[in-house]
């Protein structure tokens, strides 16, 4: 355990190819996922045993069959969740309120709008903070301190207040996403804009570059890696903001609404399907940001 972290010694023999494949990352991830699935299946019978619709006695196979065909299981089987996902995405018309594509789009649209607004606000604030000393001294401590408080709790207020002045639907949720995701962007971009060291800044000065030129040609390009690191955080909390923003409106549309209505009516499969859909959405969003990062860095001449 302690030696494996050391650099390979010249004398050490490489492990054989099958051993290397078996201990490679993808295989290890697959093994852990498999273990989780096995554990999940093993838990289905004990977790559902208390339900009135479950037979009290019987062989394990019978119990398993009964648990798998439950309509409202305490713990559904993974394949049942996937089947529900399939049913509510592919086999349902996309415009129907039973379609997860419909609800996913409602959530995704406010996530993306809030994300765009939040990133824009975050970058503007960061530019202000690095160029105005008083703004840095006044605002930055508050932005950092705000990371320690559960600002998500403000979400219901925004929904209700904007609702009472006639704004409903997309915009209030987007505003929640926006105010959640501008914090990491601002903090990351302030770090990024101040990341060029004094040597690089001095070089710009010897070129007699103006402040704007230094910003455009040095500070902005230098901040791009920081931007993408913050974007990954921002996009996932933007999604959380949109989902939580759908809760106080009383479950009209969106993945959060599916979670809430599933919770009201005990539709466990609906909850799990919405949860999986949210997870898939989150990973697609993070993947999109990662791809954009790779493309951008390559276009900027970074080494792959």
């Amino acid at each position: 355990m302690t030696t494996e972290a050391l650099p390979a010694r010249p004398s050490a023999r490489l492990p054989s190819l099958p051993a290397r494949i078996l201990s490679s990352g993808p295989v290890a991830i697959a093994a852990v996922v498999l273990a989780i699935l096995v554990g999940w299946y093993a838990m289905i019978v004990p977790m559902n045993a208390g339900l009135p619709s479950m037979p009290k006695e019987g062989s394990y196979a019978e119990l398993t069959r009964a648990a798998w065909s439950l309509e409202r299981p305490v713990l559904p089987a993974p394949h049942a969740v996937v089947a529900e996902l399939w049913r509510s995405t592919v086999e349902t018309r996309m415009t129907s309120p039973r379609s997860l594509v419909f609800h996913g789009w409602v959530t995704l649209s406010s996530t993306l709008l809030g994300f765009a607004l939040g990133v824009a606000l975050g970058i503007v604030l960061a530019i202000g903070i690095v160029s105005v000393k008083a703004l840095e001294k006044s605002l930055l401590p508050w932005i950092i301190a705000s990371q320690t408080i559960p600002i998500l709790a403000v979400a219901p207020i925004i929904i209700v207040v904007l609702g009472s002045i006639g704004l409903t639907g997309l915009v209030p949720k987007a505003i929640i996403s926006m105010y959640l995701c501008f914090f990491p962007v601002t903090i990351g971009m302030v770090k990024g804009f101040t990341s060029p060291d004094s040597m690089q800044l001095d070089l710009m000065r010897t070129y007699s570059a103006s402040g704007l030129q230094t910003f455009a040609k040095l500070r902005w390009p230098a901040s791009v890696p920081f931007l993408f690191a913050s974007l990954k955080v921002a996009v996932s909390i933007s999604l959380v903001g949109a989902i939580v923003g759908e809760l106080p409106t009383g479950a009209q549309a969106g993945l959060g609404a599916r979670l809430l209505s599933g919770s009201y009516y005990g539709q466990t499969l609906q909850i799990w399907a919405a949860l999986f859909a949210a997870a898939i959405l989150a990973s697609l969003l993070v993947l999109a940001v990662t791809l954009a990062e790779k493309v951008t860095l390559r276009l900027m001449g970074g080494r792959p």
Binding site: W272, A282, S283
Partner: peptide, 16 residues
């Protein structure tokens, strides 16, 4: 990967 997911969504399951 899981850290980037909206884990908060498990709340209704936990309540159940």
């Amino acid at each position: 990967f899981v850290s980037a997911l909206p884990i908060i969504g498990i709340a209704p399951i936990m309540v159940m």
